[in-house]
Design a protein around this nucleic acid. Structure first.
Lengths: 161, 161
DNA sequence: ATAGATGCAAATATTTTGCCGCCAG
DNA sequence: CTGGCGGCAAAATATTTGCATCTAT
């Protein structure tokens, strides 16, 4: 029987679905100053092939422009968060207490992580949309953010014992 | 039409459904040493009426036994996490980057938080169980932990503007 | 008796802030 | 021009670790 799940990935790598310049454009619309440093961080976020923590974002940004500092990364991430352009995840604290960031597309997705190898899949499901609608209705809440993280052992890791 | 959601709470306060001594018993079964300090932390976790961060757990524990240190709290929380007896949440980072802990009952529940007033409801839903089953089947993963956090504006906060 | 816990202090890790010179608009 | 931004250094917060001592079993 066929499933109703839609997978964005199957290897833990993200497929980049945002158009290039997406974030940049959003900030432009909001009349937010586009500095050299911000452009670099946005570029890093947009071209991300996986979930990154602040440290990784910093080091990628510095590869493009060595002058960028950690503080600027944090401030820019905060800016993007406040405008709802990126999500902050902890991926079940599988690897310490880092926070991971992803620029998010139009649809919510579920993060499915293997506690063994750390691979993360992103999954969409109509059932999830239905669940959110039910909660919205039943709790009389206007949902602005939804996050689901699921952990377990993947097939490979079960095989390896 | 009636909803299929089951609410555990409606005010953000948790209703304590675990039997007293639940955690203590679990550790006993696993042949884990029950020290004076652990007993106190377990008692705090079991009688929690809301989600607590490490700081709050520490101060409640110290009200029972002033000699308990922060380090012991962290180590005990880590122990409980490793044994899957408590969950670590960030509640959408609504109030900074604190981590919140809760001893969990037999069923997963969804955390529904108001971004305005910070109230947190816990909700169960058959739809959620179904979703997890679907993911488990489709991703070929043996789910060990699932966490869903939903944020939005509650009725009261919408009314207040 | 002894493996494993605790306490203390210090080390790490992570994120935020004050202040001042600088740059995008 | 000028108000917001980035850099630097330091503070604040959060969590972990080494080691000596103590204790539950």
């Amino acid at each position: 029987m066929s499933s109703t799940l839609a997978h964005r990935v199957s290897t833990g790598e993200r497929i980049n679905v945002e158009e290039a310049g997406h974030l940049q454009r959003e900030l432009g619309v909001r009349r937010i100053r586009l500095t050299r440093q911000r452009r670099v961080v946005l570029q890093v976020m947009e071209s991300a092939s996986r979930h990154m923590d602040a440290e990784e974002i910093l080091s990628l940004a510095q590869q493009i422009d060595a002058a960028i500092t950690r503080v600027t990364v944090y401030r820019t991430l905060d800016l993007l968060k406040r405008h709802g352009l990126i999500d902050e995840l902890d991926l079940l604290h599988l690897r310490g207490h880092r926070h991971y960031y992803e620029s998010h597309g139009p649809r919510d997705h579920i993060h499915v992580a293997c506690v063994g190898c750390g691979k993360v899949r992103e999954v969409e499901s109509p059932l999830y949309e239905e669940l959110k609608q039910q909660i919205s209705r039943d709790c009389a809440i206007e949902i602005t953010v939804a996050r689901t993280e699921i952990g377990g052992l993947c097939e490979d890791c079960r095989a390896k014992g």
